[in-house]
Simulated scan of single mutants.
Amino acid sequence: MGIAVIEKIENHYRAHFERRLQHNVEEVWAWLTENEKLAKWFNELRVGDLSEGGFMRFDMQDGTFEELAITELKLYSVFQFSWWADTVRFELFPDSDGCKLVLIETIEKMTDHTPKDLAGWHVCLDVIEALMDGRTIERMEEWKKWYENYKQAVKNVTS
């Protein structure tokens, strides 16, 4: 899988990830929105109220939780929620062999943490695909590799 396309657009940035999956949109949607499946690829994140205007719940790992607003929801098509000051958007496009999964993170301000998040999303998408295919991935090793790529990509777009 190639690195996400990262661009500066007006006064913010956008990271665009794509994955071609051999699974239908209903299966992929379940991995994005059902807490039992979500826990397998993003342990800190849960759906609190799956509706437009509902929320995601992020476990801060210190006994506290943050609620992230679900800002757009179209069944089997679009799932968008706030990611603190940023936005995370999943889009699903059916095709004859499964579907295309797109993740777009709209980033208000690049920080030292941004490449970590981008590498994290990259690996999350790889993990979803692996789990659906019955495989496993060594997450930390993959993350370390992609983190170096995303550090350079962020540097390229901000310099």
Rank of each mutant, 00 (worst) to 15 (best):
K8R: 15
W83Q: 09
A85F: 09
D97A: 09
E27N: 03
E91P: 01
E129M: 10
D59A: 09
W31L: 03
T111E: 14
A119E: 00
E52Y: 04
H23V: 08
H12R: 12
F55M: 00
F42W: 08
M110V: 11
A30R: 11
G120F: 13
G54L: 10
A119G: 05
L32D: 09
A85H: 10
D95C: 02
F79Y: 06
H122K: 10
L101D: 09
W121L: 01
P115T: 03
M110T: 09
K151V: 14
E36R: 13
W41G: 05
I6C: 06
H12N: 10
D59W: 06
G120K: 05
E27C: 00
E67T: 07
D133S: 15
K116R: 09
Y150L: 08
G48L: 01
T158M: 06
N43A: 02
M110S: 05
L32A: 05
W84R: 08
H113W: 06
G98L: 08
L118K: 08
G63Y: 10
L21Y: 15
E105I: 08
W31I: 07
Q61K: 12
A39C: 04
G53F: 06
T158F: 04
L101K: 05
R46H: 05
E148Y: 04
R57K: 15
L32W: 11
D97I: 05
W41N: 05
G120Q: 00
E148V: 08
R139K: 11
H23A: 14
Y13W: 00
A30P: 01
K40V: 01
R135D: 01
V102R: 14
H12S: 03
E72G: 06
D117P: 01
W146E: 13
W31F: 15
A4S: 13
L45V: 12
G98A: 12
W31H: 12
K74L: 14
D62L: 11
Y13G: 03
